[in-house]
């Protein structure tokens, strides 16, 4: 069964997302900041990362994604962005932000599962 890492500073989002994914049979590991997030990725080697772009700093998720890619860790990343416009980043495919897909919060469980399934194929 696939392992999914959820990295988000909002405990309620982690809780709700974990539950939905658990119900679909995925295993979940979580972290509420980029430093712990990096650690669990290195230790647990998940099959997919769900990463919030805005944690301690408005672009923490963005830098974590870049760091992972620089270290040749190419686990698919699904980025949570309720903030793309808020912080002035314009995300385009392959442009600076090395992630595989974006989702805008809030997301329905069906959409989330579908995005996850697409990335895990």
């Amino acid at each position: 069964m696939s392992l999914i890492a959820i990295i988000d500073d909002d405990p309620d989002i982690i809780e709700a997302t974990s539950l939905v994914l658990n119900a679909k049979g995925y295993e979940v590991v979580t972290a509420n900041n980029p430093v712990d997030g990096y650690t669990i990725i290195k230790e647990k080697k998940p099959d997919l990362i769900i990463l919030d772009v805005m944690m301690d700093e408005p672009d923490d998720g963005f830098f974590l994604a870049q760091k992972l890619r620089r270290e040749k860790i190419d686990i698919p990343i699904l980025m949570y962005t309720s903030v793309s416009k808020a912080v002035g980043f314009e995300f385009g495919e392959g442009e600076l932000v090395p992630v595989n897909d974006f989702v805008e919060k809030p997301i329905s469980p069906e959409q989330l599962v579908q995005k996850v399934e697409n990335l895990l194929i």
């Binding site: 309620d12 809780e15 709700a16 469980p109």
Partner: peptide
């Protein structure tokens, strides 16, 4: 987003 997440789980019969 947080509240919606919880409400959807509560109503979701598959969870």
């Amino acid at each position: 987003s947080a509240v919606l997440g919880y409400l959807r789980i509560i109503l979701d019969e598959t969870v």
